[in-house]
Design a protein around this nucleic acid. Structure first.
Lengths: 146, 146
DNA sequence: AATTTTTGATATTTATAAATAACAAATTCT
DNA sequence: AGAATTTGTTATTTATAAATATCAAAAATT
């Protein structure tokens, strides 16, 4: 794929991302600490953000500022994404999965050591990538629940 | 059923409900305006609250004060309840249904004039009654989405 | 090697959601 | 008939979530 089209390339350091979004660097780190965003990390632990990340953050920003949904509200909504269905999680794996039980934190904020998600990069996962907007979650429910 | 056991009887005027929950009368009206609660209304338009209402409001209170989810966040979560599945809404009815499209307001805040919900009392509906807690929504999703 | 930027952490500010207070008119109750 | 309560509305207060400001140490850049 052409680099120009690939939205998932880690391109922007945190200062640039902050400028693009017109927010402070610290706010970006807060969103990460809360589990709303998972930026790419270099070996040095420095963050890099992709175009898709900027898009995602812009959406989060709207949700907070325009829809007036608190960060904990967003986390709770994310926790409702049916990840077990999306990644085809086995019944056994579900039993031991914290995020399967959780209704306050998104699955990508948990350590998945024993199940299908272990050692996979959440950034690459459809659960993380496709459900940044609340809209997409309801559409998913419509598809799955007849 | 014994009146003492029936949780759905309209028993308490707003002043008593407010005292039971240790909040102001105005806050109760606000929750209603926001669509979080649907109290019984007398012909005179005066509100009456059941034991189930008090329980529901107590849960809403915890969600706001302890889980730190904003009212708009709660509304959005409620809007994700798969009502169409619960009330067995026809495909045709869904097309014209505002709440089927909404991802910001619960179904019981809409006027349902043309579909299966028309003229039904939302207070009596399983959608309204069984999903006051976020927990119950995730459990429902687990049941429906394999 | 020197400059710039990042890191995480703490302390502070700001914006605003949530709750309260006050009002006159209508309704209920004794 | 009169007292108490409810109604809806507007204006105000309060609590706190969200964002900003500072800091020294580490890393990156030129």
């Amino acid at each position: 794929m052409d680099d120009f089209e690939n939205l998932d390339l880690p391109l922007f350091p945190i200062s640039v991302a902050a400028r693009l979004l017109d927010i402070s660097v610290h706010t970006l780190r807060m969103y990460e600490r809360e589990g709303l965003i998972v930026p790419f990390k270099k070996e040095s632990n420095h963050r890099l953000y992709s175009k898709a990340d900027i898009e995602r953050l812009s959406c989060i920003r709207k949700t907070i500022n325009e829809s007036k949904i608190s960060i904990n509200g967003i986390k709770t909504i994310y926790s409702l994404i049916p990840c077990w269905d999306i990644v085809n999680c086995s019944l056994k794996d579900r039993e031991n999965c914290e995020s399967y039980k959780s209704h306050s934190n998104p699955c990508w904020t948990f350590q998945h050591v024993y199940n299908i998600c272990a050692h996979l990069d959440c950034r690459e996962c459809d659960v993380y990538k496709n459900f940044a907007e609340c809209k997409s979650l309801k559409e998913k429910l419509k598809l799955e629940i007849k």
